Simulated scan of single mutants.
Amino acid sequence: MTDLTHIDDIRREYLKGGLNEQDLAENPIEQFNKWLEQAINANMTADPTAMNIATVDEFNRPSQRTVLLKQVKDEGFVFFTNLSSHKAKDIEQNPNVNLHFAWLPLERQISIQGVAHKLSLTENAKYFLSRPRDSQLAALTSKQSKSISSRKMLDMAFEQIKNKFKNNEIPVPDFWGGYLVVPERIEFWQGGAKRLHDRFEYRLVDGVWELHRLQP
């Protein structure tokens, strides 16, 4: 059994290499794509596109959950969800969000502050119809974030939906859709020896990205 009384002793040096300003692209989306490609090619995790999204509710209580990044556009970052979920309700009353990628085997993190905008019905349908059939059925089945009495009830509901559309195209649910997070600030973090990490912040000022090194 692992001894948890000394977790404060768990530490390691970050020795993958530093990050210099001349190594960074002028545009943070381009820099993000470079790091994402490296994370995918490193085969370090089953979910290199996994990101935490932080929102706040009407009482200013923060919450986080992991979702999958589905598109990177020049304008920002796209994910999809149930539009009646907790996160969607939070975004409805406060569209300011934070996305966080942790590629720890590469000793890298990216933090993105931005504003979430709903995608169009056309964009939602295009992606929904590209999903595997079981994923489409699951979207119709799940009333995300609502209570349910048991896993058995969820499985039964899935089978009912599956039988209902057995020989038919699955419609795009009106309670399902995507968001484009338009960034205003993006930070790239690279671990460094002696806890002297390299941090660079891109901040959008009057439509232009400014780049600054931050102290660790």
Results as ranks from 00 to 15, higher is better:
126 K>G: 00
145 S>M: 00
114 G>V: 05
133 R>T: 07
7 I>K: 13
102 A>D: 08
12 R>G: 06
159 E>H: 13
194 K>D: 11
71 Q>W: 09
1 M>A: 13
57 D>R: 02
35 W>G: 00
192 G>V: 08
102 A>H: 06
208 V>T: 15
89 K>C: 11
48 P>C: 03
97 V>L: 12
146 K>N: 14
128 F>C: 02
69 L>M: 14
209 W>P: 08
27 N>Y: 03
149 S>W: 10
37 E>Y: 00
123 E>F: 07
208 V>I: 15
150 S>N: 14
47 D>C: 07
201 E>D: 10
74 D>T: 11
195 R>G: 03
129 L>W: 02
158 F>A: 03
206 D>H: 14
211 L>H: 05
16 K>D: 09
62 P>W: 02
171 P>Y: 08
125 A>D: 11
95 P>H: 03
111 S>V: 12
72 V>R: 02
51 M>Q: 04
137 L>K: 05
147 S>R: 11
206 D>N: 14
94 N>E: 11
185 R>F: 10
61 R>I: 12
136 Q>F: 01
87 K>F: 05
163 N>S: 13
111 S>I: 15
80 F>L: 15
158 F>G: 06
95 P>R: 05
97 V>T: 12
39 A>M: 06
167 N>H: 00
140 L>Y: 04
27 N>G: 03
8 D>Y: 15
184 E>W: 06
190 Q>G: 12
67 V>I: 14
37 E>L: 07
173 P>V: 13
4 L>H: 14
67 V>N: 08
209 W>D: 13
162 K>V: 01
38 Q>E: 12
196 L>Y: 13
175 F>E: 14
82 N>A: 14
22 Q>L: 04
53 I>R: 01
138 A>H: 02
32 F>K: 03
23 D>G: 04
85 S>A: 12
23 D>K: 04
137 L>H: 06
33 N>Q: 03
45 T>I: 03
19 L>D: 13
61 R>M: 09
72 V>D: 00
213 R>L: 08
65 R>T: 02
157 A>P: 01
98 N>A: 15
73 K>D: 00
106 L>R: 14
142 S>M: 13
187 E>A: 00
68 L>P: 04
90 D>G: 05
190 Q>L: 11
79 F>H: 05
181 V>M: 09
37 E>T: 10
129 L>I: 02
108 R>H: 08
59 F>M: 04
125 A>Q: 09
17 G>A: 10
191 G>E: 04
154 L>H: 08
47 D>T: 14
132 P>A: 09
206 D>I: 09
144 Q>K: 11
147 S>E: 09
59 F>A: 10
106 L>G: 13
203 R>D: 02
169 E>T: 10
27 N>I: 02
83 L>V: 06
64 Q>W: 01
21 E>R: 08
77 F>N: 13
46 A>H: 09
196 L>P: 09
165 F>E: 03
17 G>N: 12
148 I>W: 12
192 G>H: 05
98 N>H: 11
111 S>R: 15
